[in-house]
């Protein structure tokens, strides 16, 4: 593939065969993946945004839960490298209630893909699938458990947007909102602490169990001002309105008052702090609407970086291991 070959993308030790979470990945392997992402990002600036890197490979997207942006991002990442894409949407009624996960996979797998991108409402489902196929599995979000490519693109966005802290040493990340139900929060905690940063988790006790603070490098607080103070990046999490009906939260007004990431609170953060959000945003709920459009906000850059980071993930798993 000539000049587009991401030669920088060979990690020093063999990375795991799948990307289920970031547990098996070393900081060096993650940085190597980011180096590959730099090459892919350069591809995305060209007039012709396509390289033949994955020509002949087939990527299957297996979404057991509705998602638009993540699925589009993966499909773009596959096609930009000339892979064929087959898509299976199993959300809603298309998977009969009684069909086992194994049977569903076996049906799709009969059509032969080299790698599956899987989103599932149940934690662990992508790991279960690895038992029943020879293809590589990329977790695109499983229940509340993990969303590793989101965490990778978040950290990559920080690395490319906050000069001087590319090594992540001494970096403080604040994650504010519904941490308990968030796979994005879990994967970011896993990744940023692995890279050397410290993470502060913030939310009401109903959405932030104490046990999540037991990991080294992680602190909990129930006061958003404390979480934000001096932070280099502040990530607001989407607040699902069903949390109110589920008895986990009082009114929207109170949540906004106590936990919204807004301009006033951002004054407590590092002067160059980034405002992040994994999307989709509830403007003026967990994040002040005008702050999302502020120069400190990298929300759109996060979405844009999703493509090169996922290109690097697909490339590394399909080609980098051979």
């Amino acid at each position: 593939m000539g000049a587009a070959t991401p030669a920088a993308g060979s990690p020093p030790t063999k990375h795991p065969r799948h990307l289920l979470d970031l547990a098996g990945w070393t900081a060096e392997q993650v940085h190597a993946l980011f180096d590959t992402s730099d090459v892919m990002a350069q591809v995305m600036t060209r007039t012709i945004k396509k390289v033949p890197a994955l020509q002949g490979f087939t990527v299957g997207t297996l979404f057991f839960e509705d998602s638009t942006r993540t699925r589009l991002s993966f499909e773009r990442a596959a096609r930009a490298q000339s892979a064929d894409v087959i898509s299976f949407a199993a959300g809603g009624s298309s998977v009969s209630k009684g069909e086992s996960l194994k049977d569903t996979l076996k049906t799709i797998d009969a059509m032969k893909s080299d790698l599956y991108v899987v989103r599932h409402p149940a934690a662990g489902a992508p790991l279960q699938l690895t038992r029943w196929t020879d293809a590589a599995i990329v977790n695109a979000g499983d229940g509340r458990r993990a969303h590793p490519t989101q965490a990778l693109l978040d950290a990559y966005t920080f690395r490319t947007s906050f000069p001087g802290y590319a090594g992540f040493e001494g970096v403080e990340l604040a994650i504010v909102g519904d941490v308990a139900h968030s796979r994005v929060a879990r994967s970011n905690v896993e990744l940023w602490t692995k890279l050397g940063a410290r993470v502060r988790l913030c939310g009401p006790r109903t959405l932030l169990p104490d046990e999540l603070g037991e990991r080294p490098g992680v602190t909990l607080t129930h006061r958003v001002e404390e979480a934000v103070e001096g932070a280099h990046a502040v990530m607001a999490l989407r607040l699902q309105t069903e949390r109110m009906a589920g008895g986990l939260l009082p009114s929207l007004a109170e949540v906004r008052e106590r936990y919204q990431v807004n301009r006033a609170r951002m004054r407590l953060a590092h002067p160059d702090a980034l405002v992040m959000h994994p999307g989709p945003m509830n403007r003026d709920v967990e994040i002040e609407g005008v702050l999302a459009d502020d120069p400190r906000s990298v929300v759109e850059r996060q979405v844009a970086n999703g493509v090169p980071v996922r290109m690097a993930v697909l490339y590394t798993l399909l080609v980098g291991s051979r």
């Binding site: 086992s100 194994k102 049977d103 149940a122 662990g124 489902a125």
Partner: peptide, 10 residues
């Protein structure tokens, strides 16, 4: 076996 080959929630 098929019932136990479902996901963790189901």
């Amino acid at each position: 076996r098929a019932e136990k080959d479902r996901d963790a929630l189901r």
